[in-house]
Every structure is written in structure tokens, then in C-alpha cells.
């Protein structure tokens, strides 16, 4: 593999990493703060894709507006889910959390089937993103570059939210000691709702961003959640930096794996997950 295709494939991998990261980020935040492992998080990504599809393609809204609205709508779904279901899930044993959120996966994927039908859809690329840029003399799709930038921008926003300002401070305090946080007068139920909404919005945005290049279908939720699990496990459950690193690793492994071992690239990713769990169950960056 020459240097040129190495870079090319690396960029493809990075754009893939961003979708994974946007799902894994929410998964990690939910696990770290709410202590719930959410199978249904991939379904929020799926919802983001469907909302964006309808807004952008069926209702012919502006692309940017569609992205923002889709993410916002997923946030509202997140709000409803948290208020009526997840709140009851937090105290359950982990096995039951997994089972219950799996039930939500079933409900949500049938819901989209009911509304949008079970077919695969790929809407056309927005005009501004049509075309390629030359990178080391090789054409590279503009949209993938945009996804990388958008992913990094969202990462910056999450960082700002969590590390700067009152909300982030409260969240971090609650994550490290729930009882203490309650004792200090932090309204944990409301805080948890906002945390869940953030996680949902980020995943929904990931799904929305995926529509011009990845298929929109009821199965995308279960497909991405397993990969997102791989990502969070590799990075360390509940570790946000670890999840980012994990997303980079899995995205790049996917891209290079397809090039180098086209038949076993998926196998390799699950092998990687199993190896991390066996050798370092706390993940690469877990404490």
C-alpha cells in the first residue's frame, strides 16, 4: 500500500470514526453518569437519520436546518424516553438494563418501519458537497471531509459543555459522587434528563449527518450500536477520552482492514474488542 492510499484510506477511516464517535459519546456519557448501558442508543442514531431524511428530502428543507432540526427532534424523543422509561431503568441490575433497552430497540425499529417503510433509502448529496478535493493528487469526497470537521466541532462543543461552566461542573460532581451531589442540593432527576437529552442529540446528529453517504434503513440502529459498544469497551466504559480514542481505532481499523484483510475485517474488530476485554477490561484509558 503506497503512501497516497494510506492517507486516503486514513481519511475515509476518520470520517467513519466520527459517526461511531457521535454514538459512542452519548453511550459513554449515559454510562458514566446515569450508569445505564443503553442498547437503544443506536436507535436514536437511526431516528436522527430518518428525521433528517424526511426534513431534507421529503420536506425539501435547507440541509443545515434539517441537520439541526433532526438532532433537536431526537433530543425530544430522548426527553420522552428518559421521563417515562429510563428513569425506571437506572436502579435495575445491569443485565436487566440491557434487556429492557433491547426491548426499546425492538419498539423503535418497528416504529420507523411503520412510518417510513422497511426499504433502504439514500437521498442525493446536497449541492454544496458534490465533488471532490485533491489530496496528494487523489480525489477525496468533500462530504467526508465535512463529516470529519463536523465531528470535531461537536467534540469541541461537548468538551466546552462538560469542562466549562456550571452545567458541566454539576454533571462531573454527580458522576463522581451521586449522594454527595444530592446532598449539595443538585436536582439529580432533572440533571439526568438533561444529560440523556445531550446524549440523544449527539447520536441523532450522527444519524442525520450520515444520510447522504450511508443508507437509511431500520437495521442501522442495531448495526451501529454493536460497533459503538466495541468503541466504548476499547476506550473504557464511561471514559469519554477513551471513547474518542476507541472510535479512531475502530474507524481506522475498519478502513484499513477492508484494504488489507477484506474478508475478515469485521472479525478483526470483534477480536479487538474481545482482546481488550480479556487483557484490559477497564479499556485502554480506563482507570
Amino acid at each position: 500500500m503506497d503512501f497516497q492510499s494510506l492517507v486516503y484510506q486514513g481519511l475515509i477511516g476518520l470520517s467513519l470514526s466520527m459517526y461511531l464517535w457521535l454514538v459512542a459519546a452519548g453511550l459513554t456519557i449515559a454510562f458514566g453518569i446515569l450508569r445505564v448501558l443503553n442498547f437503544a442508543h443506536g436507535s436514536l442514531y437511526m431516528l436522527g437519520a430518518y428525521f433528517a431524511f424526511t426534513l431534507y428530502y421529503s420536506l425539501k428543507l435547507n440541509f443545515w436546518l434539517s441537520m439541526v432540526l433532526a438532532a433537536g427532534l431526537v433530543g425530544i424523543v430522548g426527553l420522552i424516553l428518559e421521563r417515562f422509561l429510563f428513569r425506571r431503568i437506572y436502579p435495575l441490575e445491569e443485565a436487566y438494563q440491557l434487556i429492557l433497552t433491547f426491548g426499546i430497540v425492538l419498539i423503535l425499529s418497528d416504529t420507523v418501519k411503520m412510518i417510513w417503510g422497511g426499504v433502504f433509502m439514500i437521498p442525493p448529496m446536497p449541492n454544496i458537497f458534490v465533488g471532490t478535493v485533491n489530496i496528494l493528487g487523489r480525489p477525496f469526497p468533500v462530504y467526508n471531509l465535512f463529516v470529519i470537521c463536523a465531528g470535531l466541532a461537536v467534540t469541541g462543543l461537548i468538551w466546552l459543555l462538560l469542562e466549562r461552566g456550571w452545567w458541566g461542573k454539576t454533571v462531573r460532581a454527580t458522576a463522581s459522587d451521586r449522594e454527595m451531589a444530592s446532598a449539595l442540593g443538585i436536582n439529580t432527576p432533572v440533571l439526568f434528563t438533561t444529560v440523556f437529552i445531550l446524549a440523544a442529540v449527539v447520536a441523532g446528529l450522527g444519524g442525520a449527518l450520515s444520510i447522504p453517504v450511508r443508507v437509511v434503513a431500520p437495521g442501522v440502529g442495531t448495526a451501529i450500536i454493536v460497533q459503538a459498544f466495541v468503541v466504548t469497551v476499547i476506550g473504557g466504559l464511561g471514559n469519554l477520552k477513551g471513547a474518542f480514542l476507541g472510535a479512531l481505532i475502530v474507524g481506522l481499523a475498519n478502513a484499513y482492514g477492508i484494504l488489507l484483510f477484506p474478508t475478515i475485517e469485521l472479525f478483526l474488530i470483534y477480536l479487538l474488542m474481545a482482546l481488550v476485554l480479556l487483557v484490559r477490561p477497564k479499556g485502554l484509558l480506563g482507570g
Partner: peptide, 8 residues
């Protein structure tokens, strides 16, 4: 969907 609700 029915199964999902049942599980919940």
C-alpha cells in the same frame, strides 16, 4: 413492537 412492549 409488540414483543418490545412486552419486554418493557
Amino acid at each position: 413492537m409488540v414483543l418490545g412492549f412486552t419486554v418493557v
